[in-house]
Simulated assay, not measured.
Amino acid sequence: MKKIAVSIGDINGIGIHIALIEHSNIKKICHPLYCAHQEIFEKACDILKVKMPKDMEFLPPKQNIPEIIPAQINSQSGRYSYESFIKACELADKNEVHGICTLPINKKAWNLANVSEIGHTEVLAKRYKKDTIMMLGCEKMFVALFTDHIPLKSVSSHINTQKLISFLLTLYQNLKLKNALVLGINPHCGDGGIIGDEDEKIYQAIEDVNKIIGKEIFIGPIPPDTAFSPSNRKKYSFFVSMYHDVGLAPLKALYFYESVNITLNIPIFRVSVDHGVAYDIAYKSEPNTQSYLNAMNLAIKNGFLYE
């Protein structure tokens, strides 16, 4: 049975509750190792008024045990979620686990804890010195992001033909894609340059990378407002978006509870839930766990997406 390290995320959010709810199901399909102190889970059980499972295995980070303060953003929970993630990475680096699954963090809490990276993906890029690719989705649809956590005003300056060629080629090599639809960036893909010339760079990158691969894998650019039409979703399972929200808004509208987050182009397998800490319901009501279940199932399959 495969071992999966679970980074528990922000202890003031819904992560621990999700892990507790699904432990009995998860243990049937893998051997989960929770990167946290048992005492934190015991405290969470006290707050939630639920029984602590007796067969949970903990591999805690070298970090002081913080207090759980439901729904509060603070540096202590930020530091602990970061150290839990690093512990999971260390286990994967040593081949002590087959992959890692991360529960949600709060980026502001990381900032308060003086973590220099914005989030998980940026830590992985720095740790492994790789150009990581953030891809989110579920069995029905995946969206890979050319740019992820950058301001909207900076996106146009990042559209570069050579960088996009490298990105698309890396995506193909990581997934062995059969095909993928690439979104443009301007309304109507620029209408021949009268509404911006960035889409011409995207078109050139698609043409060049298909020549390198030797077949037509990437199609586009397609105007984002029609890219996710029902007919396109029948023909394509993979989409490439130039900007974070343009690609993820339709994905989350369609498959909010099902989607997961995958980091590509790193030497370990990392998958995550595709939602936040949900402070509004933390320790109050039961969270939806489908994203976590899907993420763990994908980790067990080691990212094989074509079953």
Rank of each mutant, 00 (worst) to 15 (best):
E117G: 00
I118V: 08
H120V: 04
T121G: 02
E122D: 15
E122S: 07
R127H: 02
R127Y: 10
Y128K: 10
K129L: 12
K129V: 09
K130A: 15
D131T: 08
D131K: 15
T132C: 13
M135D: 11
K140T: 09
K140F: 02
M141L: 15
M141G: 04
V143S: 09
V143T: 11
A144V: 10
A144P: 02
F146G: 04
F146L: 10
F146T: 05
H149S: 09
H149K: 10
H149E: 11
P151V: 13
K153A: 12
S154K: 15
V155N: 06
S157R: 13
H158L: 09
N160F: 04
N160S: 13
Q162K: 15
Q162E: 15
K163L: 12
S166T: 14
L168H: 07
T170V: 00
T170H: 08
L171C: 07
L171T: 05
Q173V: 01
Q173M: 12
K176P: 00
K176A: 14
L177E: 08
L177Y: 10
V182W: 03
L183E: 06
N186F: 03
H188A: 13
H188S: 06
G190C: 09
G192M: 11
I194K: 12
I195E: 01
D197R: 07
K201P: 00
K201T: 02
A205W: 02
A205V: 05
I206H: 05
I206A: 11
D208T: 07
V209F: 01
N210R: 03
I212V: 14
G214D: 09
K215H: 12
K215G: 00
K215P: 01
E216F: 01
F218S: 02
F218I: 06
I219F: 11
I219A: 08
P221I: 13
I222L: 04
P223Y: 10
P223Q: 12
D225F: 05
T226H: 00
S229I: 08
Y236Q: 12
F239H: 07
F239G: 03
V240M: 12
S241H: 07
